[in-house]
Amino acid sequence: MVHFYHVSKVYQNGVKALKDVTMHISKGDFLFLVGPSGAGKTTLTKLLLREELPTKGQVIFCGKNVARLKPQEIPLLRRKIGVVFQDFRLLPKKTVYENVAFALEVIGGSGQIIKKRVPEALELVGLADKQKMFPSQLSGGEQQRAGIARAIVNRPLLLITDEPTGNLDPKTSWELIYLLQEINRLGTTIIMATHAWDIVNTLKKRVVALSGGQMVRDEKRGVYGYGG
């Protein structure tokens, strides 16, 4: 579903974020993206969302070269990809329900679809009873669940999570991982950039390690580490 062919990215300020990365992600994968800060994990997700263009090489998503999309096709690409942020990025003046509904509103979803899907998503992440609360009234873990509900309510093919447990305590982190696994079982492909070595080591999923912009490891049932 996702293919990176010899992808390099040099930013305008000269920083070489990715060097000749080639990797393939199949539908249904659960992939950990590990590596130190500045290794290129975020750049990889930005290339997928076409927030940045590769300097060299090709990024293919669902059979389409992401760099060659017309401007009006970019929103359609992004609708197939859900994103969960480390800092949640919920809108503080909207309730949990409104935050999740927002994802459907901005793509022109009808009232019927919103009324059906938002409660489903909130049920799945376990926030059905807190839908009328504002983000500030929720714990970190609950806020991240709301973020996940917002990312999956549009039923994306791919879910990118950038250090989703970075701001959470260990117990809450594990609850979140179980939730992501559940979503993965329902058919959504997941890329999770993370520093949480204990989670990676316990789950024994596919691990792609980046270091200094280069892919140093790609193991089917890997453990944490990017030493090469």
Binding site: P75, R78, V106
Partner: peptide, 11 residues
């Protein structure tokens, strides 16, 4: 956030 969610520019 709207951009990431796939809102069109006109929206």
């Amino acid at each position: 956030i709207m951009k990431v969610l796939g809102a069109t520019n006109w929206f």
